[in-house]
């Protein structure tokens, strides 16, 4: 696995644009198209914003994001925080058939990540949450 780029910053919304910009540049360098890059940006934003809001429960903490390439075939965005255990894949899917009055947007972020990425994996390693968003480079 080749690491292309890594940044670690405080898990705050102020850093969103810098983090997304890094991911976007890596994706561009891998030759991904504009549409796929936009989808990657959305998925990465959703994962990061969840961490900004919930991981540290009001305490400060860092988030680290890395872009990697596996066997030249898969582009991976790995997002690591040391906040409370949170497996986004365990979040139940939102009911996308409800009308405006009943509709909640909670859960849509994770739903978008799952729909837009080719593969999403989560693991808890020691005190860390490690979320990997994978995109096939061959399509």
């Amino acid at each position: 696995m080749e690491v292309l780029s890594t940044i670690r910053v405080p898990a705050k919304l102020d850093h969103l644009h810098a983090l997304i910009g890094m991911v976007s540049n890596c994706a561009k360098e891998q030759g991904l198209g504009e549409k796929r890059i936009n989808e990657i940006e959305v998925a990465a934003e959703e994962a990061l914003v969840n961490i900004f809001h919930y991981a540290y429960q009001g305490q400060g903490g860092d988030v680290e994001i890395s872009c990697k390439v596996e066997r030249g075939r898969t582009f991976i965005i790995e997002i690591i925080d040391a906040g409370m255990p949170f497996d986004p894949l365990a979040v139940s899917e939102p009911d996308t058939t409800l009308d405006v009055a009943e509709r909640q947007v909670g859960g849509i972020g994770v739903f978008l990540i799952k729909k837009l990425m080719d593969e999403v994996t989560y693991r808890r390693d020691g005190n860390k949450n490690i979320l990997a968003l994978a995109v096939d480079l061959r399509t």
Binding site: N38, V42, E45, V49, R103, V105, I108, G109, L112
Partner: peptide
């Protein structure tokens, strides 16, 4: 570009 934060503001 729009993310779920944008969808939430629309809703």
């Amino acid at each position: 570009y729009i993310s779920s934060a944008g969808l939430r503001s629309i809703l």
